[in-house]
Simulated assay, not measured.
Amino acid sequence: MGQQPPPPHALSGIGLTALWALHHRSLHLHDPVAERVLAQIGSGRGTPGPLMGRRTSIMAHYFTQRARLFDAEIRQFLSRHPRAVVVTLGEGLDTQFWRVDDGRLRWIGVDLPEVVRLRQRLMPPSDRVTHVACSVLDPHWMEQVPRDGPLLITAQGLFMYLRPRQVTELLRACARRYPGDTMIFDTSPWWFLVLSRLKWLRCGGFRIPALSSSLSPRGLARLRSRLPAGTSVSHIPTRDASGPFAAFQRLGHRIPFVRRCVPATVRVVFPVCENR
Protein backbone atom coordinates (compact mmCIF):
# COMPACT_ATOMS: atom_id res chain seq x y z
CA MET A 1 0.00 0.00 0.00
CA GLY A 2 2.98 2.30 0.47
CA GLN A 3 4.11 2.01 -3.12
CA GLN A 4 3.89 4.99 -5.45
CA PRO A 5 0.98 4.62 -7.91
CA PRO A 6 2.07 4.26 -11.56
CA PRO A 7 1.74 7.30 -13.86
CA PRO A 8 -0.80 6.96 -16.72
CA HIS A 9 1.92 6.65 -19.38
CA ALA A 10 3.33 3.60 -17.58
CA LEU A 11 0.09 1.65 -17.97
CA SER A 12 -0.79 -0.41 -20.99
CA GLY A 13 -3.39 -2.91 -22.13
CA ILE A 14 -5.88 -3.85 -19.44
CA GLY A 15 -4.63 -1.26 -16.95
CA LEU A 16 -4.93 1.58 -19.45
CA THR A 17 -8.45 0.52 -20.46
CA ALA A 18 -9.47 0.49 -16.79
CA LEU A 19 -7.95 3.95 -16.27
CA TRP A 20 -9.80 5.38 -19.28
CA ALA A 21 -13.15 4.09 -17.97
CA LEU A 22 -12.39 5.45 -14.49
CA HIS A 23 -11.50 8.87 -15.91
CA HIS A 24 -14.83 9.29 -17.72
CA ARG A 25 -16.88 8.05 -14.79
CA SER A 26 -15.18 10.66 -12.61
CA LEU A 27 -16.11 13.37 -15.11
CA HIS A 28 -19.78 12.51 -15.45
CA LEU A 29 -20.81 10.74 -12.24
CA HIS A 30 -20.79 12.01 -8.68
CA ASP A 31 -17.84 9.83 -7.74
CA PRO A 32 -15.41 11.42 -5.27
CA VAL A 33 -13.52 8.14 -4.80
CA ALA A 34 -12.77 8.00 -8.54
CA GLU A 35 -11.56 11.60 -8.42
CA ARG A 36 -9.22 10.83 -5.50
CA VAL A 37 -7.80 7.76 -7.24
CA LEU A 38 -7.14 9.73 -10.43
CA ALA A 39 -5.46 12.48 -8.43
CA GLN A 40 -3.10 9.87 -6.93
CA ILE A 41 -1.86 8.84 -10.35
CA GLY A 42 -1.70 12.30 -11.87
CA SER A 43 -4.75 12.03 -14.10
CA GLY A 44 -7.26 14.18 -12.26
CA ARG A 45 -10.20 16.08 -13.69
CA GLY A 46 -8.06 19.07 -14.56
CA THR A 47 -5.31 17.17 -16.31
CA PRO A 48 -6.80 14.28 -18.30
CA GLY A 49 -4.29 14.47 -21.10
CA PRO A 50 -4.93 13.73 -24.78
CA LEU A 51 -5.00 9.97 -24.25
CA MET A 52 -7.97 10.06 -21.89
CA GLY A 53 -9.96 12.63 -23.90
CA ARG A 54 -10.92 16.08 -22.69
CA ARG A 55 -14.43 16.16 -24.11
CA THR A 56 -17.37 13.80 -23.83
CA SER A 57 -17.36 11.57 -26.90
CA ILE A 58 -20.35 9.44 -27.87
CA MET A 59 -18.51 6.39 -26.54
CA ALA A 60 -17.74 8.01 -23.19
CA HIS A 61 -21.35 9.20 -22.94
CA TYR A 62 -22.63 5.66 -23.53
CA PHE A 63 -20.27 4.10 -20.97
CA THR A 64 -21.32 6.67 -18.35
CA GLN A 65 -25.01 5.90 -18.89
CA ARG A 66 -24.22 2.19 -18.68
CA ALA A 67 -22.57 2.77 -15.29
CA ARG A 68 -25.67 4.63 -14.07
CA LEU A 69 -27.91 1.77 -15.19
CA PHE A 70 -25.79 -0.82 -13.35
CA ASP A 71 -25.72 1.38 -10.24
CA ALA A 72 -29.51 1.65 -10.31
CA GLU A 73 -29.96 -2.11 -10.75
CA ILE A 74 -27.64 -2.87 -7.82
CA ARG A 75 -29.38 -0.35 -5.55
CA GLN A 76 -32.76 -1.81 -6.48
CA PHE A 77 -31.51 -5.35 -5.74
CA LEU A 78 -30.11 -4.24 -2.36
CA SER A 79 -33.40 -2.56 -1.45
CA ARG A 80 -35.13 -5.93 -1.90
CA HIS A 81 -32.32 -8.04 -0.42
CA PRO A 82 -30.46 -6.13 2.33
CA ARG A 83 -28.19 -9.12 3.10
CA ALA A 84 -27.12 -9.57 -0.50
CA VAL A 85 -23.62 -10.25 -1.75
CA VAL A 86 -22.55 -8.57 -4.99
CA VAL A 87 -19.90 -10.22 -7.14
CA THR A 88 -18.50 -8.09 -9.95
CA LEU A 89 -16.60 -9.88 -12.71
CA GLY A 90 -13.87 -7.98 -14.54
CA GLU A 91 -14.04 -5.09 -12.07
CA GLY A 92 -11.15 -3.08 -13.48
CA LEU A 93 -10.72 0.20 -11.60
CA ASP A 94 -14.41 0.74 -11.07
CA THR A 95 -15.36 2.50 -7.81
CA GLN A 96 -18.93 1.23 -7.92
CA PHE A 97 -18.82 -0.24 -4.41
CA TRP A 98 -18.56 3.26 -2.91
CA ARG A 99 -21.34 4.61 -5.16
CA VAL A 100 -23.89 1.97 -4.15
CA ASP A 101 -22.78 0.97 -0.63
CA ASP A 102 -25.63 0.92 1.88
CA GLY A 103 -23.37 0.27 4.86
CA ARG A 104 -24.05 -3.47 4.88
CA LEU A 105 -23.04 -4.48 1.36
CA ARG A 106 -20.59 -7.35 0.97
CA TRP A 107 -18.65 -6.98 -2.26
CA ILE A 108 -16.41 -9.42 -4.14
CA GLY A 109 -14.38 -8.14 -7.10
CA VAL A 110 -12.85 -10.59 -9.56
CA ASP A 111 -10.13 -9.59 -12.00
CA LEU A 112 -6.72 -10.57 -13.30
CA PRO A 113 -3.82 -10.41 -10.80
CA GLU A 114 -2.27 -7.29 -12.36
CA VAL A 115 -5.54 -5.38 -12.03
CA VAL A 116 -6.12 -6.57 -8.45
CA ARG A 117 -2.62 -5.41 -7.50
CA LEU A 118 -3.40 -2.00 -9.00
CA ARG A 119 -6.70 -1.79 -7.11
CA GLN A 120 -5.02 -2.68 -3.83
CA ARG A 121 -2.53 0.14 -4.34
CA LEU A 122 -5.11 2.75 -5.33
CA MET A 123 -8.48 2.04 -3.69
CA PRO A 124 -9.55 2.83 -0.11
CA PRO A 125 -9.51 -0.32 2.04
CA SER A 126 -12.77 -1.81 3.31
CA ASP A 127 -13.37 -4.93 5.38
CA ARG A 128 -16.50 -5.57 3.29
CA VAL A 129 -14.59 -5.76 0.00
CA THR A 130 -12.84 -8.96 -1.09
CA HIS A 131 -10.50 -9.16 -4.09
CA VAL A 132 -10.13 -12.41 -6.03
CA ALA A 133 -7.17 -12.41 -8.40
CA CYS A 134 -7.94 -14.78 -11.26
CA SER A 135 -9.57 -14.96 -14.67
CA VAL A 136 -13.36 -14.81 -14.60
CA LEU A 137 -13.22 -18.12 -16.51
CA ASP A 138 -11.37 -19.76 -13.61
CA PRO A 139 -13.91 -21.44 -11.27
CA HIS A 140 -11.65 -20.52 -8.32
CA TRP A 141 -13.58 -17.28 -7.79
CA MET A 142 -16.80 -19.22 -7.17
CA GLU A 143 -15.21 -20.85 -4.14
CA GLN A 144 -14.84 -17.40 -2.52
CA VAL A 145 -18.55 -16.52 -2.68
CA PRO A 146 -20.52 -17.07 0.57
CA ARG A 147 -23.90 -18.77 0.23
CA ASP A 148 -25.65 -17.23 3.22
CA GLY A 149 -27.85 -14.77 1.36
CA PRO A 150 -29.09 -13.57 -2.04
CA LEU A 151 -26.43 -13.10 -4.71
CA LEU A 152 -26.14 -10.61 -7.56
CA ILE A 153 -23.38 -11.14 -10.13
CA THR A 154 -22.51 -8.28 -12.46
CA ALA A 155 -20.29 -8.21 -15.54
CA GLN A 156 -20.00 -4.68 -16.86
CA GLY A 157 -17.95 -4.18 -20.02
CA LEU A 158 -16.71 -7.79 -19.95
CA PHE A 159 -18.65 -10.27 -22.05
CA MET A 160 -17.87 -8.56 -25.37
CA TYR A 161 -14.21 -9.42 -24.75
CA LEU A 162 -15.03 -13.13 -24.33
CA ARG A 163 -15.80 -15.56 -27.13
CA PRO A 164 -19.48 -16.61 -27.41
CA ARG A 165 -18.70 -20.13 -26.21
CA GLN A 166 -16.88 -18.77 -23.16
CA VAL A 167 -19.89 -16.58 -22.28
CA THR A 168 -22.26 -19.54 -22.55
CA GLU A 169 -20.01 -21.81 -20.47
CA LEU A 170 -19.63 -19.16 -17.77
CA LEU A 171 -23.40 -18.64 -17.58
CA ARG A 172 -23.98 -22.39 -17.38
CA ALA A 173 -21.42 -22.71 -14.58
CA CYS A 174 -23.16 -19.93 -12.65
CA ALA A 175 -26.54 -21.60 -13.19
CA ARG A 176 -25.22 -24.82 -11.65
CA ARG A 177 -23.54 -23.05 -8.74
CA TYR A 178 -26.10 -20.33 -7.98
CA PRO A 179 -29.65 -21.60 -8.60
CA GLY A 180 -32.22 -18.87 -8.07
CA ASP A 181 -29.66 -16.05 -8.16
CA THR A 182 -29.28 -13.19 -10.63
CA MET A 183 -26.64 -11.97 -13.08
CA ILE A 184 -26.60 -8.67 -14.95
CA PHE A 185 -24.30 -8.02 -17.89
CA ASP A 186 -24.07 -5.83 -20.96
CA THR A 187 -23.23 -6.68 -24.54
CA SER A 188 -22.35 -4.83 -27.73
CA PRO A 189 -24.11 -5.01 -31.11
CA TRP A 190 -22.42 -6.34 -34.23
CA TRP A 191 -21.30 -2.94 -35.53
CA PHE A 192 -19.37 -2.25 -32.28
CA LEU A 193 -17.44 -5.44 -32.94
CA VAL A 194 -16.72 -4.49 -36.57
CA LEU A 195 -15.59 -0.96 -35.75
CA SER A 196 -13.38 -2.16 -32.90
CA ARG A 197 -11.61 -4.62 -35.18
CA LEU A 198 -11.10 -1.87 -37.75
CA LYS A 199 -9.60 0.24 -34.91
CA TRP A 200 -12.20 2.97 -35.46
CA LEU A 201 -13.63 3.12 -31.93
CA ARG A 202 -11.75 5.98 -30.29
CA CYS A 203 -12.14 8.52 -27.53
CA GLY A 204 -9.44 11.17 -27.54
CA GLY A 205 -6.22 9.30 -28.13
CA PHE A 206 -7.58 6.09 -26.61
CA ARG A 207 -8.62 3.23 -28.89
CA ILE A 208 -11.21 0.76 -27.63
CA PRO A 209 -9.63 -2.73 -27.75
CA ALA A 210 -10.94 -5.18 -30.35
CA LEU A 211 -14.05 -7.03 -29.18
CA SER A 212 -14.51 -10.79 -29.41
CA SER A 213 -18.30 -11.16 -29.51
CA SER A 214 -21.54 -9.27 -29.93
CA LEU A 215 -25.15 -9.66 -28.86
CA SER A 216 -28.20 -7.47 -29.38
CA PRO A 217 -31.67 -7.63 -27.79
CA ARG A 218 -32.80 -9.63 -30.83
CA GLY A 219 -30.34 -12.39 -29.93
CA LEU A 220 -31.59 -12.98 -26.38
CA ALA A 221 -33.88 -15.86 -27.41
CA ARG A 222 -30.88 -17.65 -28.91
CA LEU A 223 -28.92 -17.12 -25.71
CA ARG A 224 -31.81 -18.45 -23.62
CA SER A 225 -31.92 -21.63 -25.71
CA ARG A 226 -28.30 -22.38 -24.73
CA LEU A 227 -28.96 -22.13 -20.99
CA PRO A 228 -30.72 -24.54 -18.60
CA ALA A 229 -34.48 -24.84 -18.99
CA GLY A 230 -36.30 -22.30 -16.86
CA THR A 231 -33.59 -19.63 -17.07
CA SER A 232 -35.09 -16.15 -17.32
CA VAL A 233 -33.29 -13.90 -19.82
CA SER A 234 -34.60 -10.35 -20.26
CA HIS A 235 -33.43 -7.03 -21.66
CA ILE A 236 -33.13 -4.12 -19.22
CA PRO A 237 -34.10 -0.96 -21.09
CA THR A 238 -32.21 2.27 -20.55
CA ARG A 239 -34.48 4.48 -18.46
CA ASP A 240 -32.80 7.89 -18.39
CA ALA A 241 -30.73 8.02 -21.56
CA SER A 242 -29.75 11.50 -22.71
CA GLY A 243 -27.62 12.91 -25.47
CA PRO A 244 -27.62 12.46 -29.25
CA PHE A 245 -28.75 8.80 -29.24
CA ALA A 246 -31.16 8.85 -26.29
CA ALA A 247 -34.22 7.67 -28.23
CA PHE A 248 -32.14 5.01 -29.98
CA GLN A 249 -31.01 3.62 -26.63
CA ARG A 250 -34.41 3.82 -24.90
CA LEU A 251 -36.64 2.50 -27.68
CA GLY A 252 -34.43 0.68 -30.16
CA HIS A 253 -35.00 -2.73 -28.56
CA ARG A 254 -38.73 -2.46 -29.40
CA ILE A 255 -38.28 -1.84 -33.15
CA PRO A 256 -37.81 -5.05 -35.20
CA PHE A 257 -35.21 -3.78 -37.70
CA VAL A 258 -33.34 -1.74 -35.10
CA ARG A 259 -33.08 -4.43 -32.42
CA ARG A 260 -29.95 -5.89 -34.04
CA CYS A 261 -28.15 -2.54 -33.75
CA VAL A 262 -28.60 -1.46 -30.14
CA PRO A 263 -26.54 -2.51 -27.10
CA ALA A 264 -28.21 -4.89 -24.69
CA THR A 265 -28.14 -4.85 -20.90
CA VAL A 266 -29.31 -8.29 -19.83
CA ARG A 267 -30.74 -9.73 -16.61
CA VAL A 268 -30.45 -13.49 -16.17
CA VAL A 269 -32.20 -15.28 -13.30
CA PHE A 270 -31.00 -18.85 -12.93
CA PRO A 271 -33.60 -21.57 -12.35
CA VAL A 272 -33.92 -22.96 -8.85
CA CYS A 273 -33.86 -26.53 -10.16
CA GLU A 274 -31.59 -27.01 -13.15
CA ASN A 275 -32.71 -29.58 -15.71
CA ARG A 276 -29.56 -31.28 -16.96
Results as ranks from 00 to 15, higher is better:
205 G>I: 08
205 G>M: 04
205 G>N: 10
205 G>V: 05
205 G>F: 07
206 F>K: 05
206 F>G: 07
206 F>C: 04
207 R>G: 09
207 R>L: 03
207 R>T: 12
208 I>D: 00
208 I>S: 00
208 I>R: 00
208 I>T: 02
208 I>C: 01
209 P>A: 00
209 P>S: 01
209 P>R: 04
210 A>G: 12
210 A>R: 05
211 L>I: 03
212 S>I: 04
212 S>T: 01
212 S>W: 12
212 S>V: 00
213 S>P: 00
213 S>W: 08
213 S>I: 03
213 S>C: 05
213 S>M: 03
213 S>K: 00
214 S>F: 13
215 L>S: 00
215 L>M: 13
215 L>F: 02
216 S>F: 10
216 S>R: 14
216 S>V: 02
216 S>A: 14
217 P>A: 14
217 P>M: 07
217 P>F: 04
218 R>F: 11
218 R>G: 03
218 R>P: 00
219 G>Y: 12
219 G>V: 06
219 G>N: 11
219 G>W: 14
219 G>H: 13
220 L>W: 03
220 L>P: 03
220 L>S: 06
221 A>L: 03
221 A>D: 07
221 A>V: 09
221 A>E: 07
222 R>P: 00
222 R>H: 10
222 R>M: 07
223 L>V: 06
223 L>N: 02
224 R>M: 11
224 R>I: 08
225 S>V: 09
225 S>F: 09
225 S>R: 15
225 S>W: 11
226 R>N: 08
226 R>W: 01
226 R>Y: 01
226 R>C: 05
226 R>E: 12
226 R>P: 00
227 L>C: 07
228 P>A: 10
228 P>E: 10
228 P>N: 13
229 A>W: 03
229 A>P: 04
229 A>R: 13
229 A>G: 10
230 G>D: 14
230 G>A: 13
231 T>M: 01
231 T>D: 07
231 T>F: 02
231 T>N: 06
231 T>G: 04
231 T>I: 02
231 T>H: 05
232 S>W: 09
232 S>K: 15
233 V>F: 06
233 V>Y: 09
233 V>R: 10
233 V>W: 09
234 S>A: 14
234 S>W: 05
234 S>I: 12
235 H>V: 02
235 H>N: 04
236 I>H: 07
236 I>D: 05
237 P>E: 10
237 P>A: 13
237 P>W: 12
237 P>R: 14
237 P>T: 13
238 T>F: 15
238 T>K: 05
238 T>I: 08
238 T>Q: 14
239 R>C: 06
239 R>Q: 13
239 R>M: 11
239 R>W: 01
240 D>V: 08
240 D>Y: 12
240 D>C: 09
240 D>I: 02
240 D>K: 11
240 D>G: 07
240 D>A: 14
241 A>I: 02
241 A>C: 07
241 A>T: 08
241 A>R: 08
241 A>W: 02
241 A>D: 05
242 S>H: 15
242 S>C: 13
242 S>P: 00
242 S>F: 15
242 S>W: 15
243 G>M: 11
243 G>A: 08
243 G>K: 10
244 P>A: 06
244 P>Y: 05
244 P>C: 04
244 P>S: 03
244 P>V: 04
244 P>I: 05
244 P>G: 07
244 P>E: 04
245 F>G: 03
245 F>R: 10
245 F>H: 06
245 F>D: 10
246 A>R: 03
246 A>Y: 06
246 A>K: 01
246 A>C: 08
247 A>N: 09
247 A>R: 03
